[in-house]
Design a protein around this nucleic acid. Structure first.
Lengths: 245, 245
DNA sequence: ACCTGAACACCGTTCAAGT
DNA sequence: ACCTGAACACCGTTCAAGT
């Protein structure tokens, strides 16, 4: 069989199969030959749909980013504050963070790829655009909005990259003697979900509390004297020169 | 030449060369043959010193973890508060976080491996032990101390995993039209260090502010009603049954 | 246009052989 | 004990050949 009358493959079918394979067996199980076998075609067939394996991986990553809800950033559909009221950034950020984490937690093996940045992936750029736009409209100075987008991504991808709890082997012997405070660490894996979700929620709320403190202190338009971040270099405000409002 | 009178390789020399290779060319450049060539030996020689490539990677990761300063957690060498005074956890955590991030930022390509958890790596376990011990001695309930260790790791590894700023291509065309708030995003890469460090410092300080709020609210011994984290499951306190004090 | 098998330069790892 | 070359089952990717 050479070219069939109706194509055996499509980008969608390939991306779907690739994600399923990565989810089930990890990134290193994703080889072009293995994936092709899963799709009942020969290895080189994939190159009719993607130029390289990296391009395929990019599409897989963006399909995961597409699962993240951005509805909370739509400016019109929310009540309780018109343009520039600046009160709801916190709720929006919390909802978004949870949706983002949930999407990544469903596909943990792809997180290292995704965490390299948005690149040219449309869903990743849409996400960055929405978060930044929300913060600026809420009254955050542009430089701070950029930083908040970055630090939220740090926390969320970090939390999805690997389970904290599952990182500790279930082996009592390992901890005995050498690590005086880790006497019960071998039991962490049992409570994996509770520990990881509790840590995420605690961190998220602490982050939002800390940011709210700065928001109150900082006002909406001054960029200097940013509180306790004395050692931080002053980040530029590189997203947009003329603001939307 | 077969077995030389004085060994050509050692674990240390191999780990050092592997880290240099990963730093210079990325994780995917680290192949046993390439690494062996760098060390002027043949590929299989490495298997006299490490059972598998994974075991070698583990040693590389732990050598990076060994760069992290843990001196701020030593209970005796600090002044201004005896045992149980519980005031200095914040300073210690900040200093540790900066040292941790600096170590990882020097070797960004290894972070995805390292973020899988401590496993059986001694330097990673020592680090977890020190952080948890510091928090418990400062008066944090054990469950919260576990969560804080986890969420700090989320934030730090996330910040070292990939530059936020460098993730946006330097291509004006890419953003025009489709992403209304990203008009200046193409300039982010220029200011890479300032943006990434500013975001890290802002997030770190916000996190510590938020945690300090909880510490004041929570007291030292009650575990319920943990403030705004209403949806968080109650994490267990798995590190140690009988505390150190 | 879209699939195939053969081929290229790579992988990690095993193993018998050398000293 | 510690190194070697040969070999195994894999990789990503190219390409001529088929319809």
């Amino acid at each position: 069989m050479a070219r069939p009358r109706t194509p055996l493959l499509s980008r969608e079918r390939i991306v779907e199969a690739a994600l399923a394979l990565v989810d089930a067996e990890g990134l290193e199980a994703l080889s072009t030959r293995r994936l092709a076998a899963e799709l009942s075609v020969s290895g080189p067939s994939l190159y009719n749909h993607f130029a390289t394996k990296d391009e395929l991986l990019d599409a897989v990553v963006d399909s995961v980013m597409g699962e993240v809800d951005l509805g909370m950033f739509a400016p019109d559909t929310r009540s309780g504050g018109g343009a520039g009221s600046g009160g709801d950034w916190r709720t929006a950020l919390r909802d978004w963070a949870r949706s983002y984490r949930a999407a990544l937690a469903g596909h943990p093996h792809i997180v290292p790829v995704l965490a390299q940045g948005p690149g040219r992936r449309p869903n990743a750029l849409r996400l960055a655009d929405a978060v930044y736009g929300c913060l600026v409209e809420a009254g955050w100075p542009r430089g701070q909005a950029t930083r908040i987008g970055a630090l939220m991504r740090y926390f969320i991808t970090g939390s999805a990259l690997g389970s904290f709890a599952a990182g500790f082997p279930e082996d009592v012997q390992l901890y005995a003697g050498d690590y005086p405070h880790l006497g019960e660490a071998h039991r962490l894996a049992e409570h994996r979900r509770a520990v990881d979700e509790g840590a995420f929620e605690t961190g998220l709320e602490a982050l939002l509390d800390g940011l709210a403190l700065r928001f109150e202190r900082g006002g909406t338009d001054h960029n200097g004297s940013e509180g306790p971040t004395a050692t931080a270099p002053t980040a530029p405000s590189p997203h947009s020169v003329s603001g939307p409002a």
